[in-house]
Design a protein around this nucleic acid. Sequence first.
DNA 1: CTGCCAGTTCAAGTGAACTTGAGGTCAAGG
DNA 2: CCTTGACCTCAAGTTCACTTGAACTGGCAG
Lengths: 146, 146
Amino acid sequence: MRDIDIAEVAALSGVRASTLRFYEEKGLIASHGRRGLRRLFDSAVLDRLALIALGRASGFSLDEIARMFAPDGRPRIDRKMLSAKADELDRTIRRLNSMRDGLRHAAVCPAPSHMECPTFRRLLRVAAAGKISEPRKAKKAQRKRS
Amino acid sequence: MRDIDIAEVAALSGVRASTLRFYEEKGLIASHGRRGLRRLFDSAVLDRLALIALGRASGFSLDEIARMFAPDGRPRIDRKMLSAKADELDRTIRRLNSMRDGLRHAAVCPAPSHMECPTFRRLLRVAAAGKISEPRKAKKAQRKRS
DNA sequence: CTGCCAGTTCAAGTGAACTTGAGGTCAAGG
DNA sequence: CCTTGACCTCAAGTTCACTTGAACTGGCAG
């Protein structure tokens, strides 16, 4: 339970200071006090950030995550919600699987135009049908220069 | 190759008229002419829209998609890019799989607090490590009232 | 001919999740 | 003591993919 300052939290968690301030404003994390102006965080904030990362990765919005460990402080996670999210994730995974297979096929398909390939056309039907969740860009460590 | 108007395209594709205009402005689709003010689309636009849906579903941005069948018109899709995207999708799927398993576990885990559950803590590490692409909300047919 | 109404344009708004900029403060080092 | 630089606040900006609103147009039914 040592106090660490925002720069250290940023370094340890990989989350930028501006994001940490933003998260605090949203009520996702809390600073424990100040030294001068500087926020002091409890080292437990690192677990909290991991939890937030988990939530984001599982498709929860920040608001949903905030609601998860809301009023008191410690994570009170709704098991029903988790289950539902797992199911949703499952459906997404299934669709992404067909997408991947289709892309993989299209990449090697000998048909002169993709539009003439039956596999590609089937893929198109899948895509046109289930509107799919949007995976957007993977943003890995988008760490630009200092 | 019949001409169809925007309302019909919307009805057949499930894409809203405003989105179709937006896509046209972005150069993703093209209208073939006008009857009065009204756009006329070639029915081939439906294939194009399926292609766009496919691209979006696979994680391409609209700009990337636009570049795919850019200057001339017909889809000249870079097989290398497809392959790369398939790989990326594959990695995303793998991560989502652990997420789902972890969520599933957390939903039934008997530990008094999730933080005390080793499986949950492992999940946390996965989430904290790979920053994962964001699946965001599934938006299926988000057809609100008129 | 008259209106209707679905279409049109263009600008601005939305929402999520942050980032950036301007201007200010303060603990610590020289 | 005074400068420095990391941190602070608050507002505004950014990106993406659209949606909405206001004001307008024109084909077609009556």
